[in-house]
């Protein structure tokens, strides 16, 4: 890695103050550090946000679960409250990376990074999450902007993610056999007024599937999914899976997600 300064912030304010165009925030570092090691990214300063009080931990209400940005995947996976109120979210967390990644990686880091194959962004979209930042609240639908791109402004820090508790939900992932990231991950959530279906791994970045949502809103069952036509047009093709295969797997995973719900 190219040399950089390591700075720890103790408050959100301090973190923002320390940040500039040459810096970035460091939470678990599970994506950031490998990228810097491979010299795909370089910064003058890394601003550690793990010492900031109040942006870690899980708060549950009847309507939502609010998870602090620096909460690790392992903590979410092991949380009894999450398991009780949105079990699919605990399942998702339990399936991220490997145990060591889960011990260190954080929800805020995952969302801020917006890797096209990361799991959490799909939960944000499907569970109609609100991203609480140091500056504002952002609806998940407006947060994810493109591949590795979000609505976050420079120096803006995610503090917590507030997931709405659905009536039913399920997440199913078809992992890349090498990296174990999602080739396709489908998150389906049924709310009182709507069904939301988010897909990760398949496109440039996480997106909602109108086709699935429409079909499932009319009839929340696997037979409804059978009839859906998923277009492969905008989907990724790479050495791991063609767009056509991804389109097919979206349906298979959607049915699996539904069966978990």
């Amino acid at each position: 890695m190219k040399n950089f300064n390591f700075k720890s912030a103790t408050s959100t304010k301090e973190a923002t103050k320390l940040s500039s165009v040459k810096t970035t925030f460091l939470a678990g570092g599970m994506t950031l550090i490998p990228a810097m090691k491979l010299r795909l990214a370089a910064y003058s300063d890394l601003i550690n946000i793990k010492k900031i009080k109040g942006i870690s931990g899980i708060k549950v209400s009847s309507k939502s679960i609010r998870i602090g940005a620096t909460t690790t995947h392992a903590e979410v996976a092991a949380s009894k409250e999450v398991g009780k109120s949105i079990p699919s979210l605990a399942v998702l967390a339990e399936g991220i990376g490997d145990p060591q990644v889960r011990n260190r990686g954080t929800i805020g880091g995952s969302i801020a990074n917006n890797d096209p194959a990361a799991d959490y962004p799909s939960a944000c979209l499907a569970l109609n999450a609100i991203i609480h930042t140091s500056k504002r609240k952002i609806a998940a639908d407006k947060f994810f902007k493109g591949m590795f791109e979000t609505d976050l402004k420079k120096g803006e820090l995610i503090e917590s993610i507030e997931f709405q508790v659905p009536e039913k939900s399920g997440y199913a992932k078809f992992p890349n056999p090498a990296s174990r990231y999602a080739i396709v991950g489908v998150y389906i959530a049924k709310f009182k007024n709507e069904v939301r279906a988010a897909i990760t791994g398949a496109g440039n970045y996480v997106f909602r599937s109108n086709e699935l949502e429409k079909a499932l809103s009319a009839n929340f069952s696997t037979s409804a999914i059978d009839k859906v036509n998923i277009s492969s047009k905008e989907l990724n093709s790479d050495i791991h899976a063609s767009a056509e295969y991804r389109a097919h797997i979206i349906k298979v995973m959607a049915k699996k997600a539904l069966s978990f719900s």
């Binding site: 090498a178 990296s179 791991h240």
Partner: peptide
């Protein structure tokens, strides 16, 4: 294009 463990699938314990 398969020059890392992200892209070259090594058999793991669960395989």
């Amino acid at each position: 294009t398969s020059a890392s463990y992200m892209d070259y699938t090594m058999p793991r314990a669960d395989n």
